[in-house]
């Protein structure tokens, strides 16, 4: 599975990256985590509020850092 974190480096983007890393470790997922910091690429996805979380090409959260529980659900439901 592929997890993308869209954000230009704001504090919330880093918080999202951290909690994703933690959730991936907790769930023991085999996932490729990519940070997308390029504005072109972010805008091309139609995202206007950063950070955004994309799982296997699908935007699952925009403009917020999901709680640990929500994040597990977003990532867990994909396996």
């Amino acid at each position: 599975m592929k997890i993308e974190i869209l954000g230009t480096g704001c504090p919330k983007c880093r918080a999202l990256a951290d909690s994703v890393a933690k959730a991936v470790a907790d769930l023991g997922l085999q996932a490729e985590v990519v940070k997308v910091t390029d504005i072109d690429a972010i805008v091309n996805r139609g995202v206007m509020l950063t950070p955004a979380l994309v799982v296997d090409g699908e935007i699952v959260a925009v403009g917020r850092v999901p709680s640990a529980g929500d994040l597990r659900k977003m990532l867990g439901g994909k396996e």
Partner: peptide, 17 residues
């Protein structure tokens, strides 16, 4: 509308384009 100045650029492009 929810807004944070760190999202000003994607929002600007999203609106104008």
């Amino acid at each position: 509308t929810p807004f944070c100045s760190c999202s000003a650029v994607p929002l600007f492009i999203g609106f104008v384009s």
